[in-house]
Each structure stands twice: as C-alpha cells, then as structure tokens.
Simulated assay, not measured.
Amino acid sequence: MNSFSRSIDLLQREMNVANLRYQVTANNLANSEVPNFKRSTVNFESELKRAFDSEEAAKNAFHLTTTDPRHIQINTPYDYREVEPRRVLDYTTTSKANGNNVDAEYEANNILQIQMQYRLLTQLTDFEFDQVNTAMKK
C-alpha cells in the first residue's frame, strides 16, 4: 500500500472513530441524570499504536517458515486495518449519589474537542488530495 492510500485510509478510519466518539459522548450527556447510568468511552488509538509498533518490530525480527496453517507464527505484524474501535464502559466510578458517573460539563467539553478534531481531520484529508492535484498539474 502506498503512502497516499495509507494516509487516506488512516484519516478515514479516524474520522469514523471521531463520529463514534461523538455518538457515545452525546449518549453519555443525554443520560447524565439517569440513575446508575455508567459513561462509556471509545478506545482506538492505543490499539492502533500497538499495530504500528508490531509492524516496526516485525521488520527486524527473526522469521520462521511455516508449512502448515496450524503452525504457530511468531513476530507476525498486527495489521492496522484490523483494528476496530472499542466502546469501554466505566463501571468502576460513581460521582453522584444516584450511582451515575457522568459529568455533564466534561462531556460537553469532550463534544467540542471531538468536533475540532473532526474538522482537523477533514482539513488533513483535503490537504492530502490537494497534494495529489498539485502533483498531477505539473
């Protein structure tokens, strides 16, 4: 996969994750007064980093030849395209007397942050395509 395709793929995936984060955060905010409701978050970047780290490690690693699909493979890179965002439920904390752990102010700020991140991701995507257009004109 070339650099442009990988960049666009990563930007598109991150935009999808930002969209999911927005939905999860809006759900948290909407349920901020529901008794015993527990907030959720979205985990994606840490798994993505793990996939990239495994790609780097596999470049310099010792590789074994496998002749059967049942053989155990070692040092096989974790493909970043297989990384999926995970919803994580925070069931360990309680910040209100009714058992709810949603801080409405924090969630509202989180929505603003997600919106700014999404806007940045769209600008980065535009920049990538502008680079291609510039290269094609020359």
Rank of each mutant, 00 (worst) to 15 (best):
N2D: 07
N2C: 05
S3T: 15
F4W: 01
S5W: 09
S7L: 09
I8H: 05
L10R: 11
L11E: 05
M15S: 09
M15L: 02
N16F: 06
V17R: 01
V17Q: 06
V17E: 07
N19G: 14
R21G: 01
Y22T: 00
T25M: 00
L29Y: 04
L29F: 08
A30G: 04
N31V: 07
S32L: 05
V34A: 11
V34G: 11
V34C: 03
P35F: 02
P35Y: 03
N36P: 02
F37H: 12
F37R: 06
K38L: 00
R39T: 03
R39Q: 07
T41S: 08
V42G: 01
F44H: 04
E45V: 14
S46I: 11
S46N: 14
L48S: 06
K49A: 06
K49D: 09
K49H: 04
R50N: 10
A51M: 01
A51L: 00
F52M: 07
D53W: 02
E55S: 12
E56I: 12
A57Q: 14
A58W: 09
A58T: 07
K59D: 06
K59C: 00
K59P: 09
N60T: 13
N60M: 10
A61F: 05
A61Q: 04
F62G: 13
T67N: 14
T67S: 15
R70S: 15
R70A: 08
R70F: 13
Y78P: 14
D79R: 06
D79S: 12
Y80L: 09
Y80A: 08
E82Y: 04
V83H: 08
V83R: 06
V83Q: 00
E84G: 10
P85N: 02
V88A: 04
L89H: 03
D90C: 03
Y91S: 12
Y91G: 15
T92F: 11
T94E: 07
T94S: 15
T94R: 05
T94N: 13
K96M: 03
N98H: 02
V102Q: 09
V102R: 04
D103Q: 13
A104N: 09
Y106V: 15
Y106W: 06
E107N: 02
A108P: 07
N109K: 01
I111A: 05
L112G: 15
Q113F: 13
Q113V: 03
Q115S: 14
Y118M: 11
T122L: 10
Q123F: 03
Q123G: 10
F129L: 10
F129Y: 11
F129R: 12
D130V: 02
Q131W: 00
Q131S: 08
V132L: 11
V132G: 10
N133I: 10
T134I: 03
K138I: 12
